[in-house]
């Protein structure tokens, strides 16, 4: 019998290692696997490359990883937000490398990694400073920039429901980067609000097929006030 569920957050992230590249889902606070990130902090692995749309705010989530000095590099589209104090502090001190990527290029580079593509030609960023030094090509009269896949050793994402095979559904706009990061991570670790018996999730509503998922851990929903 195959059961991808693990009982604790600690076991879910047990094989992280120093220097790992980790994708973390979420846009703003929606879809951020906050408890899994806490488990990464507790695990203690450092020198990490974090691939995520934002760089966290306050001192929770990715901000907590930065605060704990566990992050060497961030790949993000919008790292600077109100309250991203630790990111700003470490970035200004030259202690944190930033690769700034347009959001759609981040998405297609993650998809390229998950889909086994060697690279993509994307029109986004052509002629801007974010394409400086990159190979370009004119195809049918339009200009494109060559962008390479973003690979990761781990993808940490938040979904809504799972079964023991790792089939996933999501909740509203918390889906965002989850499905494409699940495909790109060498090991994909998912926190879900519910783990349901096999066969009870309607196959027509499965968004991420279990083939892309390695481990699931149940973290029951907390209301915002309680969180």
């Amino acid at each position: 019998m195959i059961d991808k569920s693990v009982p604790t957050l600690k076991e879910a992230v047990a094989d992280l290692f120093d220097g790992a590249a980790i994708m973390i889902g979420g846009f703003g606070e929606a879809g951020v696997p906050a408890e899994l990130i806490d488990a990464v902090v507790d695990h203690g692995a450092g020198d990490l490359t974090i691939i995520s749309n934002n760089a966290g705010t306050g001192d929770v989530g990715i901000a907590a990883l930065i605060k704990a000095n566990k992050v060497r590099k961030i790949v993000a589209s919008y790292p600077r937000m109100a309250g991203s104090i630790y990111f700003e502090e470490r970035y200004r001190a030259g202690e944190l490398e930033l690769e700034l990527v347009p959001q759609g290029n981040m998405a297609c580079r993650i998809q390229a990694a998950g889909s086994g593509l060697g690279a993509v030609f994307t029109p986004t960023g052509y002629g801007t400073m974010l394409a400086e030094g990159k190979e370009t090509r004119e195809i049918d009269g339009k200009h494109y920039v060559l962008e390479y896949p973003i690979h990761a050793d781990f993808a940490l994402i938040k979904a809504y429901k799972s079964d023991r095979w790792g089939n996933l559904t999501y909740r509203k706009a918390a889906r965002n980067f989850g499905p494409i990061m699940a495909m790109a991570g060498k090991k994909t670790i998912v926190q879900v609000e519910e783990i349901d018996p096999l066969g009870t999730i309607d196959p027509e509503v499965v968004v991420t097929p279990g083939i892309f998922v390695d481990r699931v851990v149940c973290v029951p929903h907390k209301t915002k006030a309680a969180a």
Partner: peptide
């Protein structure tokens, strides 16, 4: 997306994708 100020922390989000898409 960017004022070009040397001390500004850059953030681009989806601006470049929206502009050309």
């Amino acid at each position: 997306w960017h004022t070009g100020a040397p001390d500004a922390i850059p953030a681009v989000g989806g601006a470049m994708d929206l502009a050309i898409g």
